[in-house]
Amino acid sequence: MAELTSFSFSAGDSLLHRLDARFKIIFIIFLTLVSLNVYFRGLGFLTFILLGAVFYARLPFDSGLKELRYFLILLFLIFLARVLSTHGVPIIDLKYFSVSMEGIYSGILVCWRLALIVILGFAFISTTPPSAIKAAVQWFLKPVPFIPEKKVAIMMGLILRFVPVILDQARETAEAQKARAVENRKNPVYRLTKFGFPLINRTFQRADDLVVAMEARAFTENRRDPELIAHKQDWMALIAVGCLCVSVLLLSS
């Protein structure tokens, strides 16, 4: 089976792994909002605590870095764009562009915030199994009107199951095309359609089989919801994160 990415849940028994997924989502939202509103001192403090948590939970940080390298390139481009487009007192003045202290300052600030948010996401995915994330999303959507939370949860589960099937099918289709020397064709629309049509047609047929299989097994939406229990440590963590947010905000104001 084709894998989308090596970057995913890794089993463990640290505090981060044991926390309730619902609480972890709340923490991420809090910390993201805080990190968008603080400056260097606050960001440094948050990064210190976050990296401490990542190393404490023994997350696979090196494989995480490997996945992050494209993101780092993107960050560097944003940094350059910020540096070159912000006006201020120039330090280096070349003929066409100048580099100012203000530009470097705002570039580092934006990149640091984005990197922090991505590390938050990394810590969340690698400590939470997909089924727990699905259950937490279902729980959060329950009070929202007009959104059928059970259907959404079913669809999320189906997406994760379909992706490896599609990637397998795509590899097969690409090999079949190579065998027929389609890559020698100059017309790009011809190549796109000859790749897209069999891929979608076959995956749709598989999906159709799946519908029949689900109906044959008397599929119904009214299943028992996954159980989510908040323990004492979850509430303790909530208080701790709340204190952290307030203190970081006070520190940087």
Binding site: L4, T5, I28, G121, I125
Partner: peptide
């Protein structure tokens, strides 16, 4: 890029 999350 493989990495999900609200950061994206």
């Amino acid at each position: 890029g493989g990495l999900g999350g609200i950061g994206r």
